[in-house]
Amino acid sequence: MAADRRSSWLKGVLDLLVLSCLTDGESYGYEIAKALAGAGLGEIKGGTLYPVLNRLEEAGLVEAEFRAAERGPGRRYYRLTGPGREYLAAEGAAWEGFHRAVRTQLHAGGTAP
């Protein structure tokens, strides 16, 4: 099914997409989810997003800081670390390579206009 396929595509690249949301500066969970939805990647539920953020933090690719808000609950802000930036560049390039290979193959198979 199309929805299932999209969700498995996303699984393979979600960590990179989350990192890419931090290249211009820090952000927090809800804002990252909104940015990805705005980019046309669909709604990313908190149940999917936070385990990814956790893993990225454990791997030292992002660092986080909780800040209390004047009104309402506080937010945990994430920012890219040096290794996170390098990881994003290297893995992003690998994804690009994969994407190109898929596109070339699909064109060869005659599915492209």
Binding site: G29, Y30, Y50, F66, A69, P73, G74
Partner: peptide, 12 residues
């Protein structure tokens, strides 16, 4: 810390 963050997410 996790609970505070997730509650914040739900608030939004």
């Amino acid at each position: 810390r996790t609970a505070a963050e997730l509650r914040g997410h739900l608030a939004e």
